[in-house]
Design a binder for these strands. Structure first.
Length: 633
RNA sequence: UGUCCGGUGGUGUAAUGGUAGCACAAGGGUCUUUGGAGCCCUUUGUCAUGGUUCGAAUCCAUGCCGGACAGCCA
């Protein structure tokens, strides 16, 4: 969150290079367009996820690298699936992700503004200019606290494809007048039959050769609401025998008597994606329309519509790349929505969700997410990205910024027999060894402590460097401790450890230099602050949850969330939502919005790398969960 | 059996006719008052077969394998 960190990522990282950027660079050299203009066009029918993060970083990244603009646009042409809740979340998530990085490239528009009509040879030509860089009034940390930035910019809003319904209707009329579109009365079932199959040509619709006048009349009446849903469609007239199915007279408009979240009840006909998207791009002056691979076969249609409208300005072109698929995650809106609806998770922003809001709540910073989304590269090869790459990006980022704190997740009581009962002292501790400017703090020490249950074993395996009967460990920032006696209850469970401290061994003491193999964390019992700590782990136990059509819910990780009451050093009582914490030897943690002044709730973003867990696994010495991970592998 | 798009270590990604590199992962070492971080080292790759060329991951051909496309979804 520091300026230096941002600068490093913004300026010191080599500019990404990929086949799309190479193309854009060529176009810049050729001066093909007055400026580079991309767009991020989600449909507001779900929350943005990590796959969208890649698309956002690509589109906004290109804008910032080539001095361009990236419009945020709601691709909202299907009223039955969309909702303002999703619009709001999309705006919030995009703003969070690009804050301090590319928010000065964000193209928005004045609220309520629709395209201007530009006279051109008697034919309609429409253009809607962006307002740029107005959303960057909040710093990333301010943004984390405030959230929805629409409130901060009351006069601006994203672009909406639905704002172009008037213009799209005009364009449809043009196509009809040119004999390139017709109203078809075929039922949905018959439309399917007439379309043929990938290896079998389709057949012409019996309504294909209606007169222009009849088409105009019927289309007007469709618009006026004279026909029920599904009764008629407007179709382009291309080629029912085309080897490309998307050129077999694809539908342009369908009838839907439904209220739209943005246009209300003004329309009962709605444009299809293929018709709306290319023309929305054109209206906004988009130069590079970047989408995922599944739209590759639609590109000839994208071009056909634009080219058959004889548009006067330079046409946008579509480029496709392979979407991001991280292992141990699912990135399908349909499947994510079902996790929410089935209450497998607590909501779209459940910290286990691969949604941007879930990732944010988990404690991952925007910078870390961007570094990952950019680092995976851009190709046309469909692949699964190892989640380890994502986790590495998170650790790399958090290691630099997290404040170190001592906290005990699963406490066991330790009594230091030779430490006076009424004594306590303040020990100095480093806030962040990676950042000298982070300073130090004081931690109270006293006779009764808590240490981690996993940091003591009665009969430890080889290479166990922690506390054992008769053995010694270093208490971080404090004394060397020896375990004298193990106190158990009637069931044999360990309830307390009686220990002796080497009272000359703390920093600066005469025996401070003594070498002890292990160092463990601790918290003074009398001074400890309780916190609810939510230990999150991967949501799935399989790298590809939906591989080969498997039910992804059959491979849910039963241990994806464990809640414990942790004992924390007192300074954690003042934990701040915009800061990140490392509980030493355990992992990275962030304050959850569920926290209240009297009740701390922290989320484990990710564990530290745990070489002991790996070692124990190799030793085959049983389930020595280090307390750092509950991962099922 | 149609059209389009792809195949580089375990994974992801560079090399754009000229020494196959980087990152993650894995393994080893070093350091350490975090078994964290850092530092050092190592293993593993051009789908196949032909062709063009002084020289091919790159160009050509054929084959093999994978993916997308038959919503009035986007």
């Amino acid at each position: 969150m520091s300026k230096t960190t941002n600068d490093k990522v913004n300026n010191a990282s080599p500019a990404p290079s990929d086949f799309i950027r190479e193309m854009v660079a060529r176009h810049v050299t050729e001066k093909k367009y007055p400026r580079i203009h991309t767009r991020f066009p989600p449909e507001p029918n779900g929350y943005l996820h990590i796959g969208h993060a890649k698309s956002i970083c690509l589109n906004f990244g290109i804008a910032r690298e080539f001095g361009g603009i990236c419009n945020l646009r709601m691709d909202d042409t299907n009223p039955t699936k969309e909702d303002v809740e999703y619009v709001d979340s999309i705006v919030e998530d995009v703003n969070w992700l690009i804050a301090g990085w590319a928010d000065d490239k964000l193209g928005l528009k004045p609220k309520g503004k629709t395209p201007d009509t530009i006279a051109s040879n008697g034919k309609p030509d429409f253009y809607l200019a962006p307002t740029v860089g107005q959303a960057s009034r909040l710093s990333p940390s301010e943004f984390e606290e405030i959230g929805d930035r629409r409130d901060a910019c009351p006069t601006l809003e994203p672009f909406y494809a639905s704002d172009y319904f008037d213009q799209l209707y005009e364009y449809a009329l043009q196509l009809i007048k040119k004999g390139k579109a017709y109203v078809c009365d075929l039922s949905p079932e018959d439309t399917d039959k007439y379309r043929g199959a990938p290896d079998r040509p389709g057949t012409d619709s019996p309504f294909r050769n209606r007169s222009v006048e009849e088409n105009l009349d019927l289309f007007t009446r469709m618009k006026n609401g004279e026909f029920p849903d599904g009764a008629r469609t407007l179709r382009s007239k291309i080629d029912m025998a085309s080897p490309n199915i998307w050129l077999r007279d694809p539908l342009l408009y369908r009838i839907r008597h439904a209220e739209h979240h943005h246009t209300g009840n003004k329309w009962c006909i709605y444009p299809m994606y293929d018709f709306a998207h290319c023309l929305s791009d054109y209206i906004e002056g988009i130069t590079h329309s970047i989408c995922t691979l599944e739209f590759e076969v639609h590109r000839p249609l994208y071009d056909w519509i634009l080219e058959n409208l004889d548009l006067p300005r330079p046409l946008p072109r579509q480029y496709e790349f392979a979407k991001l698929i991280p292992s141990y995650m699912i990135v399908s809106k349909r499947k994510l929505i079902s996790l929410v609806n089935d209450k497998v998770v607590t909501g779209w922003d459940d910290p286990r969700m691969p949604t941007i809001s879930g990732i944010r709540r988990r404690g991952v910073t925007a910078e870390a997410l961007r570094n990952f989304a950019i680092g995976v590269g851009v190709t046309k090869y469909i692949s699964v990205t190892d989640i380890a790459v994502y986790e590495h990006a998170i650790r790399e980022d958090l290691n630099k910024r997290a404040l170190r704190r001592l906290a005990v997740l699963r406490p066991i009581k330790v009594v230091i027999s030779n430490y006076p009962e009424d004594k306590s002292e303040e020990l100095e501790a480093t806030n962040n060894p990676e950042d000298a400017h982070a300073g130090t703090r004081k931690i109270p020490f006293s006779r009764i402590l808590y240490i981690e249950r996993d940091d003591f074993m009665e009969n430890p395996p080889p290479k166990y460097f922690r506390l054992r009967p008769g053995g010694e460990v270093r208490l971080k920032y404090a004394y060397i401790l020896r375990c004298d006696e193990v106190v158990k209850d009637t069931t044999g469970a360990i309830i307390e450890l009686r220990c002796t401290a080497d009272l000359d061994s703390k920093s600066g003491g005469t025996t401070a230099q003594r070498k002890v193999k292990g160092t463990i964390h601790w918290v003074s019992a009398a001074h400890a602050v309780d916190a609810e700590v939510r230990l999150y782990d991967r949501l799935f136990t399989e790298a590809e949850p939906d591989k080969d059509g498997r039910d992804f819910k059959s491979v849910l990780n039963p241990k994806s969330l464990e809640v414990v009451t942790a004992k924390c050093e007192p300074s954690l009582a003042g934990a701040k939502p915009e800061l990140r914490y490392q509980f030493e030897r355990l992992g990275y943690f962030a304050l959850d919005p569920d926290s209240t002044p009297g009740r701390l709730v922290l989320n484990r973003t990710i564990t530290l790398k745990d070489t002991w867990a790996k070692e124990a696994k190799q030793l085959g010495t049983g389930p020595y969960t280090s307390g750092k991970t509950s991962r099922t592998e």
